[in-house]
């Protein structure tokens, strides 16, 4: 059983990948640039506030827009343990799983938690514990859980193509 416990940073609906990592930082051979600008479009100071193990909570359609995988990488490398949202845009969803960043789609999460709350996520069951009670969500299909547990699609490929 994989349980993650972390402090919440809260965002709204339709957080797009341009605000997660503006395009001007993408053309860089130095990948450490990306987490330094994570979510800069909404909060220019965010990269200095987030601590390893924190959890991002958002409304509907998180990660909409561009397919830039740097959005998932910036969040992961900034230290976020997971993203919990009302819903995710599909390309971001795939990118996050492919890079081993856990996502939980939990209806009602926006109302149930506030910034700074501590929540607990059970990745196997999809359950989220908040101070206002527990939320249930559908767990990922088994093969997606396997990709996640492998640490991403690259490792999954290596494990299945020896």
């Amino acid at each position: 059983m994989v349980v993650l416990k972390g402090r919440v940073w809260k965002f709204g609906d339709d957080v797009d990948t341009d605000v997660i990592i503006p395009a001007k930082y993408l053309r860089s051979v130095d990948k450490t640039v990306w987490p330094k600008h994570v979510l800069e479009g909404l909060d220019p100071e965010f990269s200095s506030k987030i601590k390893p193990g924190d959890i991002i909570v958002a409304g509907k359609n998180f990660g909409c827009g561009s397919s830039r995988e740097q959005a998932a990488l910036a969040i992961k490398w900034a230290g976020a343990a997971a993203v919990v949202a009302e819903s995710f845009a599909r390309i971001f969803f795939r990118n996050a799983i492919n890079n081993g960043l856990p996502l939980i789609e939990a209806k009602g999460i926006s109302k149930a938690v506030g910034e700074g709350d501590v929540i607990e996520i059970d990745l196997d069951s999809g359950g989220v514990k908040t101070k206002n009670g527990a939320l249930r969500s559908a767990p990922l299909p088994p093969f997606l859980q396997e990709i996640l547990k492998s640490g991403g699609l690259v490792n999954y490929y290596k494990a299945h193509n020896k």
């Binding site: 795939r94 990118n95 492919n98 890079n99």
Partner: peptide
Amino acid sequence: TGVGATDLAYILAT
């Protein structure tokens, strides 16, 4: 449909 870079790499590989 659009995907990210790692998904596309997997498609190129397989």
